[in-house]
Structures are given as C-alpha cells and as structure tokens.
Simulated scan of single mutants.
Amino acid sequence: MCKKSDIRMSIKDLKKNITAEERTRFSEQIRCRIEQLPEFKQAKTILLYHSLPDEVDTSSFLRLWKEDKRLLLPAVKGDNLIIRNYHPEKLKTGRYGIIESQGDRITDLSVIDMIIIPGVAFDKKRNRLGRGKGYYDRLLSQVETCKIGICYDCQITDFLPVEKHDIPMDYIITESGII
C-alpha cells in the first residue's frame, strides 16, 4: 500500500508537467462539465475555493457564477474551516497563502446546495486525498449536500488509502470526464 506522503509527492511531480495554457484549458473544461450537472443547475448556494497555483483554476468559476449563484468560500480558523459569503472586494490572503473571503460568516451549513472541493489526489471510487491537515474532512462531516471533487486527470489514481473519517465525493470531475 502506498503511503499518503508518497502519493502527494508523486502527484506534485506530475502536476509540474501541466503548462499554463493547459491549466487554463483544463480548468474551463472542468467548469463546463460542472455546469452540465443537474445538481449545479438546481443549486442556489455553492461553496467552492479560491485556487492555489497548482490547483484547478477557479477564478472563472467565481467570476461567472457570482451573478446567478450565492457563492461561499472557506477560511481557515484554528483547526477548522469557517464559511463566508464571497465578495470579490472583500478578499485577503490567509493561512497557507490561500485567498479567503472576509464576507459575512455562514453558520447554517444546511444552506449549501453544492460543495466543490480541491484535492491532491482522487481515486476511481471517488475517495479524496487532501493536503493532510483534515480541514475538509471535518467540514464534510457536518454537511449533507452534493460533493464534487475537481482535479486534473493526472491526479486520479486507482487506489487511495482510506480512513474511517474520509468522506467520498459524489462526483469527481476532470478535464476529460466525470467519475
């Protein structure tokens, strides 16, 4: 069985081969696939994330969806993620260099219709491997909504080590398909 740390290193190396042009194109393909889902069309409130440079670029998601959807972003507070309304004019760089919203805090997580989640790797059973701090694991244990992991094809593996607290995704979307 592969160790999580080995998988993280391997995927990091694979992502280095993605050019800036491919990253833009792949991210747009992923956004278009999300927009075709019935769950997306029905969703009024979506929690997504402001991407880091090595992740699927969500800047167009935020720009295009803010007119028709209520968008939320996570912010790191202690060992947990808190959820805030997305306002493009109320952003700041938080812990780990992640851009976070300074909008109003959301305490009723039942308003979230869909969560779009980054990951270091995903497997074909829709399991997710994060960066290792457990922020999303703790958040996902508190919500029951459509969970979509997004990543590049090179981040899909046949198998990931899974622990009892890990919550699988409902969908994983890459530039070439939906799992």
Rank of each mutant, 00 (worst) to 15 (best):
I34G: 01
S27F: 07
F40D: 00
Y152K: 08
I82K: 12
D6M: 15
L160I: 04
E21G: 09
P88C: 06
R33W: 00
I115N: 07
L52D: 06
K77M: 13
K66H: 14
A20K: 10
S27D: 10
Q42F: 01
Y86T: 07
R25A: 15
E163L: 15
K66Q: 15
R8H: 04
N17E: 12
K147Y: 01
L48W: 02
L64N: 03
D6E: 15
L64W: 01
L129A: 08
L62C: 07
T107C: 15
E22R: 04
D137I: 05
D123G: 09
E22G: 03
I11L: 08
D158G: 12
I117C: 06
D79C: 15
A43R: 00
G97H: 13
G103R: 11
A20Y: 12
Y49L: 05
E55P: 05
R131F: 11
P74Y: 03
R63N: 13
P161H: 03
E21F: 09
R33G: 00
D6P: 08
Q142C: 12
M169K: 07
P118G: 09
E35W: 00
L14M: 13
I115Q: 13
T145Y: 03
I83T: 05
D153V: 02
S5D: 15
C154M: 03
N127S: 11
P53A: 01
K133R: 10
K164D: 13
A121P: 06
R95G: 13
D54Y: 09
G177R: 11
L160V: 04
R8N: 04
H50V: 10
Y135I: 09
L140I: 11
M114P: 05
I156C: 05
D54A: 07
